[in-house]
Design a protein around this nucleic acid. Structure first.
Lengths: 229, 229
DNA sequence: CGAAGTGTTGATGATATTCAAGTAATGTGG
DNA sequence: CCACATTACTTGAATATCATCAACACTTCG
């Protein structure tokens, strides 16, 4: 359990943070009301269908945002990384969480109470505007994901997901999704994901060390990703 | 080509409209800058990847919001009806349209210039808040659609779509999507959609008159929709 | 009336899921 | 730190689901 000073939030080694537009008073208050703690790998941050009381800022680590499919399978909607907000949407619309969030690695996460966030939105137009644009961008990506899942074969979706995960990572960062999570990310089952990964390995598009997948032929994967037959 | 008075926008036979919170000055200005016209069935309202200069308010009729899949097939993201806004998202984020909008019936649509909309957002917090909540709700529905397409078989998705279209309609309203559009809505092809519709007809879940589909056993369709095998 | 668009059905094959049976890696308590 | 349990990964075979191609009927509309 570790409390970060607001300054840490603002000046994170050159990273853009959504809080950079807060006044020093707002930052001070943020420090008072926030709670920062470590979530162990696999630990839920919030659960689908529970009432939203707070949103979360990912300080360090990775969080999968998931939704339960009608068959009980877990669809991963997106993966939140350092400097991302999760759970803010339900706070804005005052509803229950429409998805779950689970740490996929040991992660440092800051809880921000609902009331403070809403006050920020009301009083800080720049912040409000940033949040709105974030919403628009998330919606764009989500809509793109729909057409992908609807029309792109699993093979292409896996290739795309591997590239996407690759881009998510700065320098020496590293996530290893389980094969099951990777499957959940593209909307297929574990076994199919594994088979396709084996093919990619055979085709020298990726390398596998231990369990972790390393992209070695980005162009090749891009080609597979844009193929539709 | 017909110009509606702002009053018409506000007091539409008991329907909620997003403009109900505008001041009379704002409504007056809206009247000056808007252009209302009839779009014939099949006529595009705006096109994916073109620069956004305006958003659109559906006064009457239905508009499909679509996105091109990587294989050139058209995915329908949602169907906008009377009192819905389309294209506002790209206006907010100042980007190109991320989707196309096409009238699926003769429709009366009001064009609202970008600058006026942005000014409204800035000056009318209630309006801004309504738009933000609309964004959140759209995102919810879009995410649900992802898990549906990912894990629900086509059969269930068609059942769901038919129910959804049914709910969209008040009283005596009526849309007839082509089988191809219905397929595009659930992410399949025309032939598969037709086959499943035939089964539903055979099972007395729906009736078909001319080309139009009428739900006659809502419970039954709900059951099919929630079945995953 | 003819042409274009829409709807329909059958046959076939590709793609992906399911079930089953393991192996490999990781974590935990003694 | 080892033994054992648990979790993750892998592969094969059988099957289900869905897309594609092709041919044709029906509607609508200029």
């Amino acid at each position: 359990m570790k409390h970060l000073l607001p300054n840490d939030l603002v000046s994170k080694k050159g990273r853009y943070t959504i809080f950079s537009c807060l006044s020093s008073e707002e930052l001070e208050e943020l420090e008072l009301v926030q709670t920062t703690q470590v979530y162990k790998k696999g630990q839920p941050v919030f659960q689908e269908n529970t009432q939203s009381a707070a949103l979360f800022y990912v300080n360090q680590g990775f969080v999968k945002v998931t939704k339960l499919g009608s068959n009980g399978k877990e669809q991963i909607l997106r993966i939140a990384k350092t400097d991302d907000l999760v759970g803010y949407r339900s706070v804005i619309s005052g509803s229950r969480y429409k998805s779950s969030a689970i740490a996929i690695e040991d992660s440092v996460i800051t809880l921000i109470p609902k009331a403070f966030f809403l006050k920020l939105l009301q009083n800080n137009p720049v912040f409000y505007s940033k949040v709105t644009i974030m919403l628009c961008e998330t919606l764009d990506r989500t809509e793109t994901k729909i057409t992908d899942i609807a029309y792109k074969p699993v093979r292409g979706r896996i290739a795309e997901a591997l590239l996407l995960l690759n881009d998510l990572l700065d320098e020496k960062e590293h996530i290893t999704l389980t094969r099951e999570d990777l499957a959940g990310l593209v909307g297929t089952v574990k076994e199919t994901a594994i088979r396709i990964i084996s093919e990619f390995k055979h085709d020298k598009l990726i390398e596998i060390h231990k369990r972790s997948i390393k992209v070695v032929n980005e162009k090749g994967l891009e080609k597979v990703s844009s193929l539709y037959n």
